[in-house]
Design a protein around this nucleic acid. Sequence first.
DNA 1: AGCTCTTATGAATCATTGA
DNA 2: GTCAATGATTCATAAGAGC
Lengths: 289, 289
Amino acid sequence: MGVNLPSAEICQGDCAQLLAGRADDSFDLIFTSPPYADRRAKTYGGIKPEKYVEWFLPRSEQMLRVLKPTGTFVLNIKEKVEKGERHTYVLELILALRKQGWLWTEEYIWHKRNCHPGKWPNRFRDAWERCLQFNKSRHFKMNQESVRVPMGDWAGKRLKTLGKNDTSRFNSQVGSGFGKNIANWVGRDLAFPSNVLHLATECGNKNHSAAFPMALPQWFIKLFTSEGDWVLDPFVGSGTTSIAARELGRNSLGIEIKEEYCDAARRELKRTKLKTGAKADDGLLFATA
Amino acid sequence: MGVNLPSAEICQGDCAQLLAGRADDSFDLIFTSPPYADRRAKTYGGIKPEKYVEWFLPRSEQMLRVLKPTGTFVLNIKEKVEKGERHTYVLELILALRKQGWLWTEEYIWHKRNCHPGKWPNRFRDAWERCLQFNKSRHFKMNQESVRVPMGDWAGKRLKTLGKNDTSRFNSQVGSGFGKNIANWVGRDLAFPSNVLHLATECGNKNHSAAFPMALPQWFIKLFTSEGDWVLDPFVGSGTTSIAARELGRNSLGIEIKEEYCDAARRELKRTKLKTGAKADDGLLFATA
DNA sequence: AGCTCTTATGAATCATTGA
DNA sequence: GTCAATGATTCATAAGAGC
């Protein structure tokens, strides 16, 4: 039993230390939402915005080491407002991570469909967060097909009768067959998404208030890993990333410094739905540093 | 005639020089979409990404001077991809503008509902651009009520067609600036928007193909100015910002280096619909450097 | 007027080819 | 070797034509 089941490990401790004991090139995806500056003050000692980059770099250095060359690092983050201004520590972090050896491949926008209510005289509600994609190499794994979305009625109409536009564009090609081109569209009812994700925040969740909805790590896990791959979240909080990984058949390691969050994450993981025939806690490893 | 009409001036030349002749503290809003690095090579000589900040700063220095203390500067920009990475010149520009004395108040996201098609092995289509808000002081003018939208899914549809409909309905002048049809909604629940704007690019428009839809400057003009205020676009292109300003009863100065764009902007401005009784070209000033 | 269907095209990006 | 030009790929929207 459990041989083909994904393992899910939750470790209590600081990822700066815990990752040091892990092997090089062992994870396919790092997805995380680190404690934002000045948030969770009790947990990480309240990182000051001015010290944020300095605090982050030793941790991202370990992440760079344990990530496979074809792997991806997705950082969900948003700068806070201080004295009426957006703080610049996220911009500085991006520049610093590039200096550390990361490639800044892309910036996805998570559009929070239902963002926090509130009103201020000088700004509107903040309805988006950054999902920064970093890589070790330009040649990383990406399963675009796994996140395709239903298309408009464009394709069906288009295929009935080809417009002049298609014909003329096609004619500009030299020496390839018409059928080859149109074959891409036959039976196609799914379109590739863009770099803007529309996800509602999960509100009204009693026990654990996660920083992001399950759908967020799900999307990136599907996109950047395959079944059996390894997912790491060095600031796993209440375990959302680990649960998403487990449900998708990926192995995972979640690191969390706060004991209560670890407990919550482990509880939730045990309740995770698995394939028929598996015991709920097969493959679960709950080590403590 | 024309006493209460907004003036609209289009000047041909480089804003670095032309702004030098303008008075301090004379504009309420600067809205612009500068030539992106390596784009519009024929017009601006194709600014190299590495040189972008250096190229921009003398111009933004003038902007800082001519902006009123309560005014706002909105910069629509997006970094290009180079060798598989997002370039960092926009991040560096934000940091440099702060050093120059600007406050980075907010970053709005323009979500392009119809972004450019295409497929690549390592990224999805780019569906968003930055609208960076900068100020001279924490105490700037902001008319939040002017951009409220009805609650429910009607809001999305309304925003989508904001440009065209508002344009044709403006003659009916309602204090809200939305046009008469919005009057139907007076008394219903209006909600404040968030910092994510959902607007389609205007494609398939033969006469003037603007980099951004009319609705984009319209939104910021309503938000950050009142009737009779002064709007500046130092890279006005085909005149979209100036037209939006004029239709909303704001005075405007548009600067554009390329003669053909100036001509197009002037043509469009003459066609702009105004309040009843006004001659179409009342208040228009088409100076050439 | 209100539909449907046709057509054009947009601040794109990457791999390949040629200078 | 680097760098510039070209071709291939792709989808949401609006204008316009036709009914």
